[in-house]
Amino acid sequence: MAVQEPAEPMLLPPRHHWRAVAAVAVSVVLAAFVASLAGNPNMQWDVVGNYLFSGQILDGLANTIILTILCMAIAIVLGIIIAIMAMSGNPVLYWVAQAYIWFFRGVPLLVQLVFWFNLALLWPRIGLSLPFTDIDYTISTNVLITSFVASVLGLALHEAAYMAEIVRAGLLGVDSGQSEAGRSLGMSDGQLLRRIILPQAMRIIVPPTGNEVISMLKATSLVAFIAGGDLMTAVQNVYSHNFRVMPLLIVASIWYLIVTTLATFLQFYLEKRVGQGFSSVASRSKRA
């Protein structure tokens, strides 16, 4: 007589009673919120649709992107210079860099924007003029500092203080053996920085810089305060005439989300690129 083999027990996952309860509760609240938003006549979705691709809004969007790219480019270059000053042996350069970071990080961005916009109150004319000579190349400050220029100055100089700290952390994060190896080969300080230290520091600098780009995209909306011509300025111009505040804020939000999402993809791609030679598998085997 054949002996009945005991059946192999099936392996079951643990029961998550509360998980289901929590999921249902959150889903219900979320669904109710979305339904009330989508069906809300005050949202005026047709207005959102009408303005999403209107020329005025797209011009504002273009300005937002230009402002972001331009200001980040200035801030990165200036940030590298300030970081190098902050790490130099020259005490004057060191203190100037520290003071810059202290001031531009400490004063709110909106205050700085309004300051630059009103620079003419401080210096009505700007330029080069030498006393006791005929040399006088000056220009009216109000002509030079348009609201766009004030926006660029305010955003870029403020951002440079943050970039300086990010770059400094990146430079300090490169192993000191790297500069010793470069020096032992006869490389000058400049060659060492450009060819050996900065490329490796980029790996540390890029991720937080990506965050700064996304912050900058959103911070550009502050220039609406001085009519900087960005997306938020455009939206404000429209709703100050037609009073459709909510739908126009939705238009702005949709565009901000699209652009920040694209920036996130770009950041991911850049991080892969600067990580060359530093794959996680490889760094593990190096430690072993």
Binding site: Q178, A181, G186
Partner: peptide, 21 residues
Amino acid sequence: AQQRARMGMVFQRFNLFPHLT
């Protein structure tokens, strides 16, 4: 730096440039 260029050095921890082949 010019004087150093005439002497080679090999380090305990290699110090190769990791971002270069």
